[in-house]
Design a protein around this nucleic acid. Structure first.
Length: 926
RNA sequence: GGGCGGAUAGCUCAGUUGGGAGAGCGCAGCCCUUACAAGGCUGAGGUCACAGGUUCGAGACCUGUUCCGCCUACCA
């Protein structure tokens, strides 16, 4: 006899099977498989990362898909890897340096990079290790890193080609600058947050109007601003051309307060007359709107940069302010203006302020020279493939978000002033560069001309390999661009760079385009859109057929999990506490809920119970299957179409339900309805298989060999259905079945076949529903009258059709067993006896004639005895609760407990009295 | 400012072409019926946010309102 523990304990089991799978090479695509190829590339987690709920969900869903497709016969590749996470990783290492009293500049570029690689070697593999604990069936032999050699080659290739096509260019314009990370950021890397600020109204004196004493309002133009310190860089005041208040001032000049610099009053239709005073200060070097306006004007306005890369004021801000932090400067400027009486008023104002997505520092728009990708032509194609359905977005509603962004996409700033990343493959000739520096480029248009004409040949060399000398002037004084590329640049190439591109590898040929991308909606723009653009551009085909967008995992209250809020649920803790299977199943069951998943630990606990239920069902079946003989000998026939003639009704029924479940699951998984698939198998195993079938099978075990086969067959098939969701427990049980002389051919459940296309037996399902109704009818009467299960009942069942009558007669043993009935009278003409309890169902009516079938006198006696005992207890408690001495001396909670017990007893007494009354009425009626 | 999503049992949420209001947890009652008390059985509990409309019929479709949440944006 097989011995199994009474409850499932995942400890040890998970590790054992994971190592087994790896050692057998099951995670690698089977070269002999004739099936379709199925490929997923993992969204590479950052090497700085530690497994969080988002990863857990993401990985679980991908693993479910991969295991399902693999079992279904596909040639499956799930390609893993990690992302170098430029700014994030650099920040981590810089923090270490700070703690040691160092910084990266003191260390120097090479030493610093060495240090980061060392950090990566030490900590960068942590997250991969954690993914393995989740059971991820990735092909680890193909693991990649965004900075490894092959991927770097791909990055350079893409950069050079885009440059050669004029899609990558360099420009001097305003960008989002993080003064703390000391780098440019793309628009996407700026997080906008609504913050309470102040709107200040500053009076700018109008030149030539000093003498207009009578009308002091005409001596000033008042502008409104939230950032007074930027006024030091103002180069105009703008008003709407149709604004009658200011019409006369257009073309005049005002004297900028504090500096006395003369700036013009200009007109621009972008000015909103109804906001503030209707007059706008223009600071082209520190505001995106103003920059655009400055470039629109003819002649273009001057750019004066007053804030530096470190967030401190530059010399151009004037001696008094130079060197101050931008916020200190704001205070001083306000103080100075107030002293001069130039602040008209101020009031509270809430507006969105941009922050660095890595360090939360307020970003500063700065005029700098950066590299850009002109993404508009790429975006056009990327929109088309989604519109035409070449890429399917699931759920479809995300398409609108995607289109909205893609259709208004702006050029992508890809250079970063950090060291950790792919260095830009551009070199500058020091002697040609003189030309570049002489040219005063303040507008993009000018630069465009330069790059296409003179300057491109005058200093910039973009090349796959480091050039030895300048191709234009022959100088060997070449300096490589100091900057690295945006991390997302390499991520964008991930689906093909990981498969070997730009080389024409076998993997690339076999697995591109990949089947599906599984990811969260937070990186649709950062990553998904860019992969589509790059895939189309360089592979000539989409990077994936489907995009499945899953929800974000939040805490129970719906808040984002974050360390600072202290509401983080650690997946590793969940796995340790409840087992990986229960945890994975929970995530899958949550998966199709809206945009958010509010994670609750109780659900995990519930699914742990499910694991245990399955375990015990398996235990029962194995205990009753006489393994030694080889269980499959009980198979009634090899021809499944003949099953009906061999099997009992419940067995036919469960096989049909099993078929329905398999159908459900395959369909649900096709459509990425993970929660439906999870619920389907849960419902089947617990409520159909365990609650009904196993209970019914118990009555057949002694007499029938077929039922043993059916139990085992259903269990084994259910395990295969469940395996993608709960890989470990299913393997453990499956192997136990396999060990016991079964005819299972596969060596592991993960390489066995996924169940599908099994025949339904609708007749059996219909017939079973009659049996179930009869059982439910009896149970329900029993429940309502509080008749203990130990008491066997004699009931009458009126059948409402001839077929029902026949079915019930043939299967009476099951009804008797499940409803604990001794005698059952069945018939089309059964009459309800006066005083019977009744339960009406659609195919049967169940009567429980209380008189005669129950020994009412004995029952009443029993109840009376109970009543007496309870009354004694009540009397005792009553006395105690009225005892002053007790009330004073006993602790409060004890008193409370006694009171509660007292109340309970009183209620119980009432119920017993009721029951007695009811039973007596039956007697009287008779 | 624009867009999206949500409002269903005490709690967390399903509800896929319009016809039965559901699950898990919690709660109440009866049971340790030898696979499982991490269990079994039976129940209680809902004006499906509000107001209109389409329809024989609306939780689902349309319009409006209220309250939440999110994304996005160059009103200083």
């Amino acid at each position: 006899m097989l011995e199994l523990q009474k409850s499932y304990n995942p400890e040890g089991i998970e590790k054992k099977w994971y190592e087994y799978w790896v050692s057998k090479g099951y995670f690698k695509p089977d070269p002999d498989s004739l099936g379709d190829t199925y490929c997923i590339v993992i969204p590479p987690p950052n090497i700085t990362g530690s497994l969080h709920m988002g990863h857990a969900l993401n990985i679980t869903l991908q693993d479910i898909l991969c295991r399902w497709r693999r079992m279904s016969g596909d040639k499956v590749l799930w390609l893993p890897g990690t992302d170098h996470a430029g700014i994030a990783t650099q920040n981590v290492v810089e923090k270490q340096l700070t703690a040691e009293g160092l910084d990266r500049y003191k260390l120097g570029r090479d030493a610093f990079l060495k240090r980061v690689w060392k950090w990566k070697a030490e900590y960068g593999g942590k997250i991969i290790h954690q993914l393995k604990r989740l059971g991820a069936s990735c092909d680890w032999s193909r693991e990649r890193f965004t900075l490894d050699e092959g991927l770097s080659k791909a990055v350079i290739e893409v950069f050079v080609r885009l440059y050669e096509e004029g899609l990558i260019y360099r420009d001097n314009r305003l960008i989002n600058w993080c003064p703390r990370c000391h780098t440019a950021l793309s628009d996407l890397e700026v997080e906008h947050e609504e913050l309470e600020g102040k709107l200040y109204y500053i009076k700018y004196p109008i030149e030539g109007n000093e003498l207009n004493e009578k009308n002091s309002s005409l001596r000033y133009i008042t502008v409104a601003t939230t950032r007074p310190e930027t006024m030091l860089g103002d180069t105009a005041v703008a008003v709407h051309p149709d604004d009658s208040r200011y019409k006369d001032f257009i073309g005049k000049t005002v004297a900028l307060p504090l500096t006395r610099r003369k700036i013009p009053v200009i007109s621009d239709t972008a000015v909103d007359s109804s906001f503030g005073t209707g007059a706008l200060k223009v600071t082209p070097a520190h505001d995106f709107n103003d920059e655009a306006m400055a470039k629109r004007q003819s002649p273009a306005l001057e750019f004066i940069t007053v804030i530096g890369k470190d967030g401190r004021m530059r010399e151009d801000a004037g001696n008094r302010y130079a060197g101050l932090d931008r916020y200190d400067c704001r205070k001083l400027v306000l103080k100075d203006l107030k002293e001069q009486g130039l602040i008209e008023k101020e009031h509270g104002y809430t507006h969105a302020i941009g922050h660095c997505y890595r360090c939360k520092t307020v970003i500063e728009p700065l005029l700098t020279l950066q590299w850009y990708v002109n993404v508009k032509p790429l975006a056009k194609e990327a929109v088309r493939v989604v519109k035409e359905g070449v890429i399917r977005v699931i759920p479809k509603s995300w398409e609108n978000t995607y289109f909205a962004w893609m259709e208004n996409i702006r050029d992508w700033c890809i250079s970063r002033q950090i060291w950790w990343g792919h260095r830009i493959p551009a070199w500058y000739c020091q002697s040609c560069r003189a030309v570049e520096q002489q040219s005063n480029r303040s507008t993009r248009q000018q630069f465009k001309e330069e790059i296409t004409t003179g300057l491109k040949q005058g200093g910039v060399i973009v090349s796959r390999e480091a050039p030895e000398k300048c191709p234009y002037c022959g100088s060997t004084e070449l300096v490589q661009d100091e900057d690295v590329l945006d991390t997302w640049f390499s991520s964008a190439l991930w689906p093909f760079s990981t498969l070997g591109w730009p080389d024409k590898t076998n993997d690339l040929k076999t697995f591109y385009p990949t089947s599906v991308l599984v990811t969260g909606f937070d990186i649709i723009f950062f990553w998904v859109a860019r992969m589509i653009m790059m895939g189309l551009k360089f592979m000539g085909d989409v990077p994936f057929r489907d995009v499945y967008i899953h929800a974000l995992v939040r805490d129970v209250k719906g808040q984002k999990m974050s360390k600072s809020k202290g509401n983080v649920v650690d997946p590793l803790t969940m796995m340790k506490r409840y087992g990986t299977d229960a945890f994975r199943f929970t995530l899958a069951a949550f998966a199709a809920q809206g945009r958010d998943i509010k994670f609750s630990e109780e659900r995990v606990e519930g699914y742990r119970h499910f694991v245990n239920k399955l375990w015990n069902a398996a235990r029962f079946i194995m205990m009753n299957s006489e393994f030694g003989k080889g269980v499959w000998q009980y198979a009634p026939t090899r021809d499944f179409s003949l099953l009906t003639s061999y099997l009992s009704l419940p067995s036919r029924w469960i096989l049909s339900r099993l078929a329905a479940t398999a159908d459900d699951m395959n369909r649900a998984l096709e459509e990425y309805r993970f929660n439906d698939a999870a619920n389907s198998i849960y419902q089947f195993i617990w409520h159909e298989f365990c609650d009904w079938y196993i209970e019914m099978a118990k009555s057949e075990l002694v007499t029938s060999e077929n039922v043993k086969w059916c139990l085992l067959y259903t269990l084994e098939t259910s395990l295969r259905l469940l395996h993608p969701f709960m890989p470990y427990v299913t393997e453990e049980v499956w192997q136990k079945i396999r060990d016991q002389g079964s005819r299972l051919k596969a060596q592991s459940i993960m390489v066995s076949d996924y169940p599908k296309s099994m025949p339904r037996d609708y007749q059996a399902e219909e017939e079973m529903s009659c049996i179930m109704e009869a059982v439910l009818g009896i149970r329900s009467i029993r429940g309502e009258l509080n008749i203990p299960p130990s008491l066997e009942l004699n009931v009458s069942i009126k059948t409402l059709s001839d077929s029902t009558d026949k079915i019930l007669r043939e299967n009476l043993q099951y009804v008797k067993r499940l409803a604990k009935a001794a005698e059952i009278e069945i018939g089309r003409n059964v009459r309800k006896i006066e005083g019977s309890a009744v339960s009406v169902k659609s195919s049967v009516e169940v009567y429980l004639p209380l008189k005669g079938l129950l020994n009412i006198d004995a029952e009443i006696d029993r109840l009376k005895k109970d009543r007496t005992r309870i009354e004694e207890s009540i009397a005792f408690l009553n006395k105690r609760l009225l005892n002053e001495d007790f009330l004073q001396r006993a602790p409060e909670e004890v008193v409370e407990k006694e009171k509660t017990r007292y109340d309970e007893l009183v209620r119980k007494r009432e119920r017993i009295v009721d029951s007695i009354k009811k039973l007596k009425e039956v007697e009287v009626k008779e």
